[in-house]
Design a protein around this nucleic acid. Structure first.
Lengths: 190, 190
DNA sequence: CTGAATTTTCAGAAATTACTGAAAATTGAT
DNA sequence: ATCAATTTTCAGTAATTTCTGAAAATTCAG
């Protein structure tokens, strides 16, 4: 079963882009193919369609599962394992964000918190800590906020995103009415 | 001039993380050091402090400039070029987002748009296009929205982010008052 | 202009990462 | 329990990426 030109185009783009993310070409192509497929695919099919070795496909699928980007689906009366991507693209996006957070953001925050606890040994260290605190606070604010947004139900979220820059007007409205939150900007986290 | 333990820790974390992003270890470490430094640094200083070859530093700085993450600063009566990172961490974040958008998002959107113009040759292609359209629409909505948010003045933005999930209440308020936007959810882009 | 200081380029070496085939392990139908 | 089907592992190899030193190019003070 050969790839159609349409799918080939999509798959090879993901292969190239894959290297810009942390994932490699094989993994990118595997995901792309599973994503557009109209039915779950097994490892042999993937290996044949993409012309990768069977073992390479096995390793790639393992990585995609670690990222929670594909899931196993068993087909009755077939012993082989089939793979599919979740239907809901917004769910996929959230999974990607969660995994990146776990792998990249959290270790960085934790390093920064450690560094900020140390006693600065010099003026240079003091300045370095100031910069690290700025970075820490920005990352923490941004990720906490993303967490909150992620929890909105999809409809509210779409409505919210479509509003775009009008949010500014909404905030002005809020301030005028003092209906949401307590004193000076509302209570918040940590 | 040796690195203090504090800075060494920060710098080597960025070296390791660098490889998870598209940038390599050298570039990550160079950036980290420039970011925390309390004064602009020149290429020789960077090479000595990080124990990289001078040519490696030259290439790394070129890449950081291409990302607009460092800028040149000339010091009076010194012919050498000094490098510094912008002060404002939010500005840095925006630059990073813009560059990633230009390098990763835009090419992907453009590939997707191309693929969506083609006439599907089969039911399989039809399904593939459906998936591609879902991906395209999600990416487009998310990046356009980020563009809008990016344009908010920093104070509004911080206020907005600190609100977090309370945005839902704000949207309910908006709906009750019908003060923002026209019919059914407000007009929007493309 | 000249030439020393500085930066950039680039071919090859070193290091890292990706990929393969063969063998081992696992699975599940009988 | 057996064994064929299937998946995983892993050592070795291939491919890619990163890094270096030497040479070329550029810059600018005099």
């Amino acid at each position: 079963m050969a790839l159609t030109p349409l799918t080939r185009q999509f798959v090879s783009h993901f292969g190239e882009m894959g290297s810009r993310w942390g994932i490699n070409r094989t993994v990118g192509q595997l995901y792309a193919l599973i994503f557009v497929s109209d039915r779950p695919l097994n490892a042999d099919e993937l290996a044949e369609m993409l012309e990768f070795s069977r073992s390479n496909v096995s390793m790639g699928l393992k990585e995609l599962q670690a990222w929670r980007l594909v899931r196993l689906k068993h087909i009755p009366a077939d012993r082989r394992e089939y793979f599919e991507a979740p239907e809901d693209v917004w769910q996929i996006f959230k999974t990607l964000a969660e995994e990146r957070r776990r792998r990249e953001i959290e270790p960085t925050l934790s390093m920064l918190r450690g560094a900020l606890l140390e006693a600065p040994a010099s003026a240079t260290d003091k300045h370095a800590q100031k910069r690290m605190r700025e970075m820490h606070d920005l990352i923490e604010m941004t990720t906490n906020w993303f967490d909150d947004v992620q929890r909105l139900d999809p409809e509210t979220l779409v409505q919210f995103m479509r509003m775009g820059a009008k949010v500014q007007k909404l905030l002005e409205l809020k301030d005028r009415m003092k209906l949401v939150g307590g004193k000076s900007g509302g209570s918040n986290r940590s």
